[in-house]
């Protein structure tokens, strides 16, 4: 177990394509950090640089206080769980789990002890003698986890480990990974593009975009106070409503430039913070175009006069409205997130 320190790390391919622009990140001992972002944002590259599978163009990565830039993956004492599991197809589950330990010269009794322990924790003991192709997707995923656990490494690296599973299994495994990581207290870096997975797993969340970090923080902090337009749009489902300030002022007939910070030209609001009816705040109305009942809540898409996009509103329970009705709603001033388009950053 060890902290991971990433300082001024750059990655350039063939001298001109830059995948990562001088990135700093401190991961504490035992912490679960989730890297999230759209595909091509550099999150996987960063993870693979930590693993030693990509070279580091510039800057340093240290694990447990030791700079590992020049070290082979095996010497870094990290374990990795791959998206397609990368189980050795010709080896039994047991041989898969043992392989890394054997290569390290771990004594036989110790190997057996760790393999049996991992098999018990992950409930894969009945399949130990089977080949990977005889297992279901979920079972393979567990074996891949087991292969990481038996190593008792300084850090776990997860590269989108759940994206090959169906939605239900994904939910289960997410909880299991969280539980395991908590009990083992092993420093973990987890890459995903699924923001729900990111929110639920992370001690701290790192949102990446185009090779840079947009924001680092506890998931709820990022949700409550996104530092940039990108984070605002990326975190949260359904996504935050973002309006041009000028359009919003026109539609509501209120001059907001004095109430909001300087340089604000975009205003965002979470769909669940918009209140139906009339009350304090910015009053608007529009035609309900579409109602998506998703169980405990409903998503309303409302077309307001003068806005070129639908307003998304989340209301609790099944909606009593029907499509085509006119709805009055209010944006409370306290729920508004002010941004500037040019910098992309928050203005308050």
């Amino acid at each position: 177990m060890a902290p991971i320190k990433i300082s001024q790390v750059k990655k350039t391919y063939q001298g001109n394509v830059t995948a990562i622009h001088g990135l700093d990140l401190d991961i504490e001992d035992g912490e679960m950090v989730v890297l999230v972002g759209p595909s091509g944002c550099g999150k996987s590259t960063l993870l693979r640089m930590i693993a030693g599978l990509e070279t580091i163009t510039d800057g340093t990565i240290s694990i447990g206080g030791e700079v590992v830039n020049r070290k082979e993956p095996a010497e870094r004492d990290v374990a990795m769980v791959f998206q397609n599991y990368a189980l050795y197809p010709h080896m039994s589950v047991r041989q898969n789990l043992e392989y890394g330990l054997k290569n390290r010269g771990t004594p036989r009794e110790e190997i057996d002890r760790r393999v049996n322990e991992a098999a018990r924790v992950l409930e894969i003991a009945p399949f130990l003698e089977r080949k990977p192709r005889q297992l279901s997707g979920g079972q393979r995923q567990r074996v891949a986890m087991g292969r990481a656990i038996v190593r008792q490494p300084k850090a776990f690296l997860f590269d989108e480990p759940l994206s090959n599973l169906d939605a239900k299994l994904r939910g289960q495994m997410r909880i299991e990974i969280r539980r395991l990581q908590r009990s083992l207290k092993t420093t973990s870096v987890y890459v995903t593009h699924d923001q729900l997975e990111a929110m639920t797993l992370a001690d701290r969340l790192v949102v990446m975009n185009a090779g840079r970090i947009e924001q680092v923080g506890k998931p709820i902090e990022l949700y409550d106070r996104p530092a940039s337009l990108f984070v605002a749009g990326f975190i949260g489902s359904p996504p935050m409503n973002l309006f041009k300030l000028e359009a919003l002022s026109r539609v509501t007939g209120q001059d907001l430039s004095t109430t909001l910070p300087e340089n604000t030209d975009i205003v965002g609001i979470r769909p669940d913070r918009i209140e139906a009816g009339r009350g304090a705040g910015l009053h608007m109305f529009g035609v309900v175009e579409l109602i998506e009942p998703v169980g405990g809540e409903s998503h309303l898409y409302v077309r307001a006069e003068g806005l070129d996009q639908a307003v998304i509103i989340v209301v609790e329970g099944p909606s009593t409205l029907s499509e085509g009705e006119v709805l009055d709603f209010v944006l409370p001033l306290s729920a508004l997130h002010p941004f500037n388009t040019a910098t992309g950053r928050r203005t308050d």
């Binding site: 599978l53 993956p73 890394g100 190593r151």
Partner: peptide, 18 residues
């Protein structure tokens, strides 16, 4: 052969000939 197989083997401490 999936790239990840070789990467997993490297993380597991296998050199090229191994």
């Amino acid at each position: 052969i999936p790239d990840e197989l070789m990467e997993a083997a490297r993380v597991d401490g296998a050199g090229p000939m191994k």
